[in-house]
Design a protein around this nucleic acid. Structure first.
Length: 290
DNA sequence: TTCCAGGCGTATC
DNA sequence: GATACGCATGGA
């Protein structure tokens, strides 16, 4: 890892990392893009960047910016603003999966034609290693919902508590007291998850070390957690990259390209492959509409 | 107005 | 075990 401490900032030159493709691709819901016109509000007036986001890992805030380098944006200068070296090494290196070589990963994936297209379509995707409880909550809220609304519900939740609520916070709530979130029928599922954690019936640390099928089964004892949400909690919250969430979009990918199953070159890393495929099929469809 | 969104619980066969 | 339907909410 090649980084410099510059005053209160951490600066690194990083390949395979694009903030839009990583922070706004449906794996995390608490990153907000900073409009360049409003950068003064973030004390960035003297700082030039191509794109920047503000967000959190659970309750640690971060302002992160990107300056593209070179003609084909193969690498970027990434700056973590107002971040101590300690927090960088303890939290963010892990969160942004900076120890994984995505160049090599994409080379492996690219032995398959569709995967090769998907990797080229969004070469700056990285898997975020999110907090277990944060990811579980997020994907309980995600069911039968769209991404802008998921973000809105989580935003209202965090604003209400002044932070991301703990499971103890939610365990003490009722469907009525959570009405401010406008989460609809999902509120009772959040409460059930929180109460099972409070009672010790569910322990996410234990689940993270179980074999995949046992972990799935344990998560699915929570009301509102079925196969898809369990898979997402495992992939995004516990970095179980062999978990493969199948939502409506990935179902389309499977029906269109992989009726025989996934190619061998993604075996063991299906979850990361899924992230490229999800982004590819969604944005390819969006282009059709334009 | 109807349909859809990173699904799941329940009823029914 | 498979299939059908309702579910809260809000944008298109």
């Amino acid at each position: 890892m090649n980084y410099k401490v510059c005053g209160n900032d951490i600066v690194l030159i990083q390949s395979d990392f694009d903030l839009d493709e990583t922070l706004d691709c449906g794996q995390a819901f608490r990153w907000e893009r900073i409009d360049k016109n409003s950068k003064n509000a973030y004390n960035l007036s003297k700082f030039d960047f191509d794109k920047a986001y503000k967000g959190y890992k659970l309750n640690t805030p971060l302002l992160i910016s990107q300056v593209n380098i070179g003609e084909n944006f193969g690498a970027s200068q990434i700056t973590l603003h107002n971040t101590s070296e300690q927090d960088f090494l303890d939290i963010w290196v892990d969160y942004f999966d900076l120890e994984t070589d995505y160049t090599r990963l994409k080379e492996e994936f690219s032995c398959d034609e569709i995967m090769s297209c998907a990797c080229k379509f969004a070469p700056g995707i990285r898997m975020l290693k999110q907090d277990k409880w944060e990811a579980l909550c997020s994907f309980i809220i995600s069911q039968n919902n769209n991404i802008p609304r998921i973000k809105g519900i989580i935003s209202r939740m965090c604003e209400h508590y002044g932070r991301f609520p703990s499971y103890e916070d939610i365990a003490g709530e009722t469907v009525e007291s959570l009405a401010f979130m406008r989460a609809g029928f999902r509120a009772k599922y959040l409460i059930d998850a929180a109460q099972k954690m409070a009672s010790g019936e569910i322990d996410l640390d234990d689940i993270s070390s179980m074999d995949l099928q046992s972990a799935r089964n344990s998560l699915m004892t929570i009301k509102g957690v079925g196969p898809k949400v369990a898979e997402c909690a495992l992939l995004y919250g516990m970095y179980r990259i062999d978990a493969f969430p199948i939502d409506v979009w990935i179902k389309r990918v499977m029906e269109e390209y992989y009726t025989e199953g996934l190619p061998d070159c993604v075996k063991g890393k299906e979850g990361i492959a899924q992230q490229y495929l999800f982004h590819y099929i969604r944005n390819r469809e969006n282009e059709k509409k334009d």
